[in-house]
Design a protein around this nucleic acid. Structure first.
Lengths: 190, 190
DNA sequence: CCCTAAACGGATGGTATCGTCCGGAACGGA
DNA sequence: TCCGTTCCGGACGATACCATCCGTTTAGGG
């Protein structure tokens, strides 16, 4: 074997890693980021030792969840920027995609070291680039407000990814929020 | 004394109760709803026994925080409905007030028994009534989209009350979100 | 099929948090 | 001021959670 070659993980190891990530995503979203590691292990159908082998600390696990979320956001931003129709439709697609994938997003709930991680910041930056491209196109065509920034879209999308537990039927409510945001609350004057 | 008359709490007791509520509001928002009771006691400058005397369980304490939040929301909804200018300004005032008071809002983060409490649901209903009045006025005058509901405003306001830790300068970002929501993302066609 | 490296999983000691209990301090009416 | 009642605060036993460690199981190359 060539020295320094990355060793392939065994098949069961890779599968268990994914199970843990999926279980953690669900439980962290439902119970908060302090959910007991044993609960995550149980929900994933693995022993607690397996969780700690793949993620040495709780912070490592949370970091992996957030990283995964930004990868998903990046894919959505790419797709939206590649949208062929009017840029406004691309914006709508980006927000709708975030809403659709909301169960797979884990944002750091309470500012911590995770948000400053370089790998995650790099992903954020890449998302920003794609959204900027979309906005440029729409603004050049006169379809979008001239003062829109990628951050505006990131804020709106992030808000939609985090359902309000006090509100029923988040899909419908949030979908409506997208419409309102695109059109504005004011009546359309004829 | 007439039987059944409510006994006045002693002055120090009332003050400590408020201290605990204030400390809990800050820590629950910053650290999450599983923040140790001892931390809350310490931050409030009282002993842990005092916390448990005023709030027998963690759930009682969380309930009190949410109740307080809805009282505040109700005051803001009343003020917005009493706004004299165009209804759109009343809507803006309601959203801005929620943003201004965001540090005093504690919404149940992860659906639990609190959200089903009758007292809180009653407050929610009262908020809804005031917002409906505001919307009726604006819709009759043709200032507001005809399909707006109080829930739309409650969702928007609730979202604004919960800063995204990954975003800096929430005041500015959220204020911008209010503007975008009122005006829409599309360019104004002349 | 066999063997070895890799991965599994839960028992375990140690730490943190919970919620109660009671001796002492403080309020406020007389 | 004096006294009864109310309230305070932290020590304490019980419980929950953490994170490691090691005997057992399994994957997959030869």
């Amino acid at each position: 074997m060539p020295p320094g070659a990355a060793r392939q993980p065994r098949k069961d190891a890779a599968a268990n890693r994914e199970r843990v990530l999926d279980a953690a995503t669900e439980l962290v979203r439902r119970e908060g980021e302090k959910v007991p590691m044993a609960d995550i292990a149980g929900h994933a159908g693995v022993g607690i030792g397996t969780v700690y082998r793949h993620f040495a600390t709780r912070e490592d696990l949370l970091h992996a969840l957030v990283h995964r979320s930004f990868e998903l956001a990046l894919a959505n931003a790419r797709a939206a920027a590649a949208h062929s129709g009017p840029a406004l439709d691309g914006v709508r697609a980006f927000l709708a995609a975030t809403l659709r994938d909301r169960d797979r997003f884990v944002l750091p709930l309470h500012g911590g070291p995770v948000r400053f991680d370089p790998a995650i910041r790099a992903l954020q930056a890449e998302v920003r680039v794609h959204l900027q491209g979309l906005l440029d196109r729409g603004q050049a065509a006169g379809d979008l407000r001239a003062d829109l920034t990628p951050e505006d879209l990131i804020v709106s999308a992030s808000l939609l990814s985090r359902p309000l537990p006090a509100v029923d039927d988040w899909d419908r409510r949030a979908g409506r929020h997208i419409d309102l945001l695109l059109s504005g609350l004011a009546a359309r004057r004829p």
